[in-house]
Structures are given as structure tokens and as C-alpha cells.
């Protein structure tokens, strides 16, 4: 029975019976989810469907009422080291005294341990990540002077610095122009081609088919999860969003 073990190792994420509630109101209800490695996964659902909650639960930022998540077969506190997290851009105060470089360098702190300070290796990693998102020229700019798209690139670079196996991104396309959106998609594909897995909270139903291999349709319950071609159907969308949504095809 080695097959069972092999299968478990192949999974990037395995979520069992996950229920999360805010006070007495369930935000996620009994979610079972298995995400294979190397997939670009879109997490889609209406407002209040629990998309951000799902990501935060995987990271252990929220305590679930029931259920568990495993990351590459590891418990959350171990597995979290394999994950890079891109929070929503609006979740921080951009008037914080820091430059673009400072913020991206924060991504290296996880592997530094308690006492060590970032050295030349970390600076090199930071510069490489800035280069990848096209922000190297703005490395010394104060973060309060960035546009929305630039802020998003900074957060992305901070995650890239971690060279993680799994990326969890909360609405990386929110409020960015189409040029930035395209370059983020390029980066996602590059990460996937290097074997990484990415879960991306996404709002634009029109682009799901172009951007993702896999999709998770969520509305408190898991409506469907699987390869886009199989589960991203009109029927499933209606189940997730109600009857007024269509693919417009």
C-alpha cells in the first residue's frame, strides 16, 4: 500500500472537514479540498463566501471550529515555512516608514532566525525579486509614494523572495491596471513552471479560464473544485453565485 503515501506527498494542500465561524455564523462550512502540486488555482466566489478566510485558515492565522489543513503533508506550524503569503494590499498602512527595498527584504526574515540580520545574501535575493517584478529602479522609494499597482508588485516581490513551494495570494489583481495584471499572470505561470503551486483569490470570472488550471468555487460551502475545464461550468457558477451570474458566452 505505498500508493496511498505517494498520493499524499503529491498534494500541495489537503483540507479536511474545515469549519470556521465568526461568532455563531459559519464563514466556511465543512470544506474538504485537495490541491495537487504545480497547479495554478483560482479561488472564486461571491463576497462573504469565505475566500480570504480559507487562505487565513491554511496559514493558521484563524482558528477553525473544526477540521484541519495539511501543507505538503505537514501540520500547519511546520508546513507554513513552505508557504509565501500575499495579503490584500489594503491590509497595511502604506505610510509606514520604509522603502520598497525594506518591505521586500522582510520576506527574507522567516529564514533568518531570531538574531541574524539581513546580510549580502538577503540583499541579493531582495534585488532579484525586485527585478522580477520590474521594481528595481524604485527600490529606494518611500512606500507611501507608490501607486496601487506598484504596491501590489512590492507585495508580490516580498513573497517571491521566500522562494516558497506554495503561494497564497489574496486578490493580487484588485485595483491594478491591465499591464500589471498581465505581468502578475506571467509571474504566476513562471512559478508554476518551476513546480510551485499558487492559490489566488480572484474576482473576474471572465479571465478564470485564461489564468488558471484549477478552480475552487466557494460559497461558505465548497461548491466545486477541480480542473477549470471540468468544474468551471454555468451550473456550478449558478450554485455559487445564484442565478444572475453567467459566463457571458
Amino acid at each position: 500500500m505505498t500508493g496511498l503515501n505517494d498520493k499524499k506527498l503529491e498534494l500541495a494542500l489537503e483540507i479536511n472537514d474545515l469549519t470556521v465561524s465568526y461568532k455563531d455564523k459559519p464563514v466556511l462550512w465543512d470544506i474538504d479540498l485537495e490541491i495537487p502540486q504545480g497547479a495554478l488555482v483560482g479561488i472564486v466566489g461571491p463576497n462573504g463566501a469565505g475566500k480570504t478566510t480559507l487562505i487565513k485558515s491554511i496559514l493558521g492565522l484563524l482558528k477553525p471550529v473544526a477540521g484541519s489543513a495539511k501543507i505538503l503533508g505537514l501540520e500547519i506550524d511546520q508546513g507554513i515555512k513552505k508557504i509565501a503569503y500575499v495579503p490584500q494590499r489594503g491590509s497595511v498602512d502604506w505610510d509606514f516608514p520604509a522603502t520598497v527595498f525594506d518591505v521586500v527584504q522582510m520576506g527574507t526574515y522567516g529564514k533568518l532566525g531570531w538574531l541574524r540580520r539581513p546580510g549580502s545574501k538577503e540583499k541579493k535575493l531582495t534585488k532579484d525579486a525586485l527585478e522580477k517584478v520590474g521594481m528595481l529602479e524604485l527600490a529606494h522609494r518611500q512606500i507611501s509614494q507608490l501607486s496601487g499597482g506598484q504596491q501590489q508588485r512590492v507585495f508580490l516581490a516580498r513573497a517571491l523572495v521566500q522562494h516558497a513551494e506554495i503561494y497564497l495570494m489574496d486578490e493580487p489583481f484588485q485595483g491594478v491596471d491591465s499591464t500589471t495584471e498581465q505581468s502578475i499572470v506571467e509571474l504566476l505561470r513562471e512559478l508554476r513552471n518551476q513546480g510551485a503551486t499558487a492559490l489566488v483569490v480572484h474576482h473576474d470570472l471572465q479571465t478564470v479560464k485564461d489564468y488558471f488550471d484549477w478552480v475552487v468555487l466557494l460559497n461558505v460551502r465548497k461548491i466545486a473544485a477541480g480542473p477549470v475545464s471540468e468544474v468551471f461550468t454555468e451550473t456550478n457558477l449558478k450554485l455559487a453565485f445564484g442565478s444572475r451570474v453567467s459566463l457571458g458566452e
Binding site: L61, P87, V92, M106, R158
Partner: peptide, 13 residues
Amino acid sequence: LVCFDRSFAQSLG
């Protein structure tokens, strides 16, 4: 890090 971005700090363990 905790002053700037709490949840990211937590995600780094």
C-alpha cells in the same frame, strides 16, 4: 514586521 504587517509576520512563523 509586526508593526507593519501582522498577518505576514505570522505567516513567516
